[in-house]
Amino acid sequence: MPILEVPSRYRVPTRGEAVLELSGTTIRECIAEAETRFPGFLELILDSQGRQKRFVRFFLNGEGLERDALDSALEPGDRVTIMASAAGG
C-alpha cells in the first residue's frame, strides 16, 4: 500500500494524522481516497480543475516529481511526501 506523508500545514482536515496508508494506484487516486476519509483535504492539494496547487510539491521515495506526475503509477510500499513550499508575505 502506498503511504502518503502530509506536512503539518495540511493536517487540519486529517485531524493531525501525518502518515496515511492508502490503496490508490496513482497520487491522484490516493488524494481522492484521502478526501473520502478526511473531507476538506483534497482542496488543499488540488485546484478546482484537478491540477496540483501552486505551492504543492510531491516527492516519491525522496525524489522530487515533475508537476504532471499526478497520474503516474505507484507501487505498493511507495512513499509519497507532500511538501508545501515556503510562503510568506
Partner: peptide, 22 residues
C-alpha cells in the same frame, strides 16, 4: 533552488490562494 518556487519568483501576491485555502 528556492528562487524557482512560485514565491519568491512572482512575489508575495501569489500566496492569496494558498492563504485562502488555510
Amino acid at each position: 533552488g528556492p528562487g524557482q518556487e512560485p514565491f519568491p519568483k512572482w512575489g508575495t501576491s501569489v500566496i492569496c490562494e494558498e492563504a485562502n485555502s488555510i
